[in-house]
């Protein structure tokens, strides 16, 4: 039997790390590395810049989308949960919305916003916000009523009781959701970039899959795992500090 020829569909470890040089194709030129689109050769410096640039873009989109999503989801949940009736009425629709397959929503966002930066950010905000909205309503509903009763017996008005007692008491329950939302933000950013952006790790993945470069897909997957883990640990550390009073 002769030796097999062609492109390996299942790359080995060497192939994966060896594909690093392919990132040079995602650098648009500058900082001492020419773009390969101008005919320049791929270099490791160019590959490093290509990876760093695309990672940074995805990281910034994720961070901005996550931050706005947290403010929107938790803020809206906090406002809605003020009313027990609104809380009871909206709990089910919120959980239903949370169950919606995010990837299926991307074309809708593409129709609304086109392949714009706003579309990517809005999609991440939606993914994070809808999750945290449902979790916030749930968390506030689970705060024991004795806290509010105690605050009112000390003279706190309903607004103070809600803002300074009920909301802080719900934060430990929000913590799990806030961490889960980090993963949601990464998924949403990659998915949005995959379908309509010219830069970002999602775009790198889309391009690599188009050319069946499974080694680049695997290496990009590793990069995503590393950066998602770093952001998760950072969020976990931040939330540990915020809830340092918790038992």
């Amino acid at each position: 039997m002769g030796e097999a020829v062609g492109y390996k569909r299942v790359p080995g470890i060497e192939d994966v790390f060896g594909s690093f040089i392919s990132y040079a194709g995602f650098w648009q030129g500058g900082l001492g590395a020419e773009s390969t689109r101008t005919g320049a050769e791929s270099t490791y410096w160019g590959a490093t810049l290509g990876l760093a640039h695309n990672t940074l873009i995805t990281l910034v989109r994720t961070a901005i989308g996550y931050s706005i999503g947290v403010v929107a989801g938790v803020g809206l949940g906090f406002l809605i949960a003020w009313s027990r009736i609104a809380r009871d009425v909206l709990t089910f629709p919120a959980h239903f919305a949370r169950m919606m397959p995010l990837l299926a929503m991307i074309p809708l966002f593409a129709l609304w916003f086109g392949n714009s930066e706003l579309g990517v950010l809005t999609f991440i905000v939606f993914a994070v916000g809808i999750l945290l909205f449902a979790i916030t309503i749930n968390a506030i509903g689970n705060v024991p009523s004795r806290y509010a009763q105690y605050a009112q017996s000390l003279g706190a008005d309903p607004l103070r009781t809600y803002a300074k007692v009920v909301f802080p008491a719900s934060i430990p329950q929000l913590r799990g959701g806030l961490l889960l939302a980090v993963a949601f933000a990464w998924s949403a950013a990659l998915a949005a970039e995959f379908l309509g952006q010219q830069v970002g790790l999602g775009h790198v993945l889309q391009n690599a899959l188009y050319y069946a470069s499974t080694d680049v897909v695997a290496l990009t997957g590793l990069v995503v795992i590393v950066f998602a883990a770093i952001t998760y640990l950072a969020a976990n550390k931040g939330l540990s500090w915020v809830t340092r009073w918790s038992e």
Partner: peptide, 15 residues
């Protein structure tokens, strides 16, 4: 606030 209540369960604000 004219009636202060001490509850059986812990009601201290942990935060």
């Amino acid at each position: 606030p004219d009636r202060g209540v001490v509850f059986q369960q812990d009601t201290l604000f942990l935060w």
